[in-house]
Amino acid sequence: MPKQDLILLQDEGENWSVGFRCPCGCGDVIELLLLPDVKPRWDIKIDFRNRPTLSPSVWKTTGCRSHFWVRSGKILWVD
């Protein structure tokens, strides 16, 4: 998995999941499901500059326990 890229997995034009390394630097790979019938699930929007926005926030419950938003390709940490 690349260090600063988000990988979007699609099948026949349908978004399935996104994967990326945790931005805290711990090295964990985060995979988030985008399918409408699964829980938990996230939504992704790609802007005109190909920058991703994910919702809701990402909150790891194990390991480093990072909590952050991905907005317009940037990481916004939750206090």
Rank of each mutant, 00 (worst) to 15 (best):
G27Y: 03
V29G: 10
D79C: 07
L35K: 13
F68T: 02
I46S: 02
L35T: 07
C26D: 03
T62R: 10
D43Y: 08
N50I: 06
E14N: 06
P23F: 04
L33V: 13
W42Q: 00
K45M: 12
D37F: 14
S17N: 05
E31W: 14
L32M: 08
D28M: 15
I44L: 14
N15D: 09
R71K: 15
R41L: 13
D37E: 13
L9I: 06
L54Q: 12
K45F: 15
P40G: 01
Q4Y: 12
F20K: 00
D47T: 05
I30M: 01
L6T: 00
N15T: 11
E31D: 06
C24E: 03
L76H: 13
S66F: 13
K3N: 14
G73T: 09
L76F: 06
E31S: 15
K39L: 14
L76I: 11
S17V: 00
L6E: 00
I30G: 03
V18A: 02
S57A: 11
F20W: 09
G27A: 03
E31H: 08
W69Y: 14
T53W: 01
V58C: 01
G73R: 05
P40F: 00
D43I: 08
H67F: 05
V58T: 03
R51N: 15
I44N: 08
P2K: 07
H67G: 12
D37I: 15
K74G: 07
F20N: 03
V18E: 01
R41V: 10
K60Q: 07
D43H: 10
M1D: 05
N50T: 10
I30A: 07
Q10T: 09
